[in-house]
Amino acid sequence: MFFIGICPPHPLEKRIHGIKEEFRQKYGVKGGFRSKAHITLQMPFNLAINKEEQFISALNYMLAGKRTFKIELKDFGNFEPRVIFINVDENRELDSLQKSVEHLMKKFQVFNSTHKNNGFTPHITVAFRDLKKPTFSKIWNEVKDRDFKESFRANAITVFKHNGNSWDIFSKN
């Protein structure tokens, strides 16, 4: 299993990790630690081992000549009742990049570019999976009015591969 995302730079990733740690300590949720902080461009998909090298080459080719762009994060959002995340402001460059990734995925016979065909909703997840409804409400009440404002330059795409327990960086392009 693989997925594709954009990771924030280390200082910001560390700050987001701190938010995940806060929720782990207060509420015992740890699902957010299964991967580094990221904005998902392509949700998890299967890829045959003999297609991995070809896929990375095609991804690199697609990215050739693309410029870096600014991503702005602002406050918190949710997918009720099990996901809490940091909002990503609307961004035409990010939307365009996701569409390019989606187009590439179709060439590799992967058609699950969005969750349940709900469209692309860029965000950075901080709590999910093991988040039960009562805990969701407690965390959401705690963060719904909390300020969070950061920005960074998107200058690479990361391909993650699942190792059986968590997601490892497979390729950074």
Rank of each mutant, 00 (worst) to 15 (best):
58 A>V: 00
58 A>I: 01
59 L>W: 04
60 N>I: 02
60 N>K: 12
61 Y>F: 05
61 Y>H: 08
62 M>L: 15
62 M>T: 13
62 M>G: 08
62 M>I: 09
62 M>N: 05
62 M>E: 05
63 L>Q: 13
63 L>H: 08
64 A>M: 08
64 A>P: 00
64 A>F: 04
65 G>E: 01
65 G>V: 09
65 G>C: 12
65 G>P: 00
65 G>H: 07
65 G>M: 09
65 G>R: 11
66 K>L: 11
66 K>C: 09
67 R>F: 10
67 R>W: 08
67 R>C: 03
67 R>K: 15
68 T>F: 06
68 T>V: 10
68 T>Y: 12
69 F>P: 00
69 F>Y: 13
69 F>Q: 08
70 K>Y: 12
70 K>M: 13
72 E>N: 07
72 E>S: 03
73 L>N: 12
73 L>Q: 11
74 K>M: 10
74 K>I: 00
75 D>G: 11
75 D>H: 14
75 D>K: 14
76 F>Q: 04
77 G>L: 08
77 G>H: 09
77 G>V: 03
78 N>V: 00
78 N>T: 01
78 N>W: 01
79 F>H: 14
79 F>A: 14
79 F>I: 07
80 E>I: 02
80 E>H: 11
80 E>F: 05
80 E>G: 01
80 E>Q: 10
80 E>L: 02
80 E>S: 13
81 P>V: 08
81 P>D: 06
82 R>G: 12
82 R>T: 12
84 I>L: 12
84 I>S: 12
84 I>W: 03
84 I>R: 04
84 I>D: 05
85 F>W: 08
85 F>C: 10
86 I>T: 10
86 I>G: 13
86 I>L: 15
86 I>P: 03
87 N>Q: 06
87 N>R: 15
87 N>M: 09
89 D>V: 02
89 D>P: 00
90 E>F: 15
90 E>L: 05
90 E>T: 11
91 N>I: 06
91 N>R: 13
91 N>T: 05
91 N>S: 15
91 N>A: 09
92 R>G: 12
92 R>H: 14
93 E>V: 01
93 E>Q: 13
